[in-house]
């Protein structure tokens, strides 16, 4: 690795040693962004967005339900992306990125299911139905939990990375199934209110609250994943001299 390299080199940051301090700098910035956006989004959601003409107040669940559901699908795709990069280029950091994202994706997946149940009861009359959208989302939760269990169960880091990556790539097939389930099957779950191809079918103030909350969820995920990947890097690279230096520094600080 050349230190005299002056122009930005992406491959440089693929090295855990180079990425570790960068992640440390970026994580608190994204955490601050997440807090600001969440406060703004909740303010819009509870104090600016009007009562829904059909659903009354219960629709306000949308401000966490939709961002959480989007995030749970998107995070799995990002994990699949890093898995593919890791398998193809044999970069250590890629698998660690996927592993750092998994718990947050699982959390959002559970939140989407939980808030959906609490929204379904007053509007559909049932907490749960075996509808294609709900069932495929539940499968996504099991994929997250399965991935985390698999990764935790394998001691050898290379085998762990490879097995996790394969599960991610295979499981990613489920994500388009979730997304298009409302089109492909006759589901109780409503179709997309927001899509790239047509104008959104909801009031703009409600939409803006939802989008701000979605951005907050993004910033939260990035921040937490960066904090987590730093721990994973230390654990994985513990034999490296720079990690020993960093550990000594952290040991004195605590």
């Amino acid at each position: 690795m050349s230190t005299s390299e002056s122009r930005f080199n992406l491959y440089h940051y693929a090295a855990p040693q180079a990425f570790y301090p960068v992640a440390g700098k970026l994580a608190p910035i994204f955490a601050a962004i997440a807090v600001v956006l969440a406060v703004a989004g909740l303010w819009i959601g509870f104090f600016k967005a009007p009562t829904d003409a059909v659903q009354g107040e219960v629709y306000r669940i949308i401000f966490i339900h939709v961002p959480a559901a989007w995030m749970s699908m998107f995070v799995f795709l990002v994990m699949a992306f890093w898995s593919a990069v890791g398998l193809a280029m044999n970069t250590r950091l890629s698998a660690l990125m996927a592993q750092a994202l998994a718990p947050t994706g699982a959390m959002f997946c559970f939140v989407a299911l939980w808030t959906g149940a609490l929204w379904g009861r007053p509007t559909w009359g049932a907490y749960w139905v075996w509808d294609a959208r709900l069932t495929s989302q539940l499968l996504l939760l099991f994929l997250y939990l399965g991935y985390m269990a698999l990764v935790a169960a394998i001691d050898d880091p290379r085998r762990r990375d490879k097995a996790g990556a394969i599960l991610c790539l295979v499981g990613a097939v489920n994500v388009p199934i979730i997304y298009f389930s409302v089109k492909w099957w006759n589901t109780l779950h409503q179709g997309a209110s927001v899509s790239l191809t047509k104008a959104p079918s909801m009031a703009s103030i409600m939409l803006s609250g939802m989008l701000v909350m979605a951005l907050a969820a993004w910033a939260y995920t990035i921040s937490v994943a960066l904090y987590r990947v730093r721990v994973l890097i230390l654990e994985r690279e513990r034999h490296a001299d720079w990690v020993r230096g960093e550990l000594a520094r952290l040991g004195e600080a605590s």
Binding site: G56, E57, V58, R60, I61, T115, W119
Partner: peptide, 16 residues
């Protein structure tokens, strides 16, 4: 009270 939907709305936000 959330127009009578309090438990559903706050149950969602609380657990999250």
């Amino acid at each position: 009270e959330m127009g009578g939907s309090g438990p559903f709305v706050w149950g969602s936000y609380g657990v999250t």
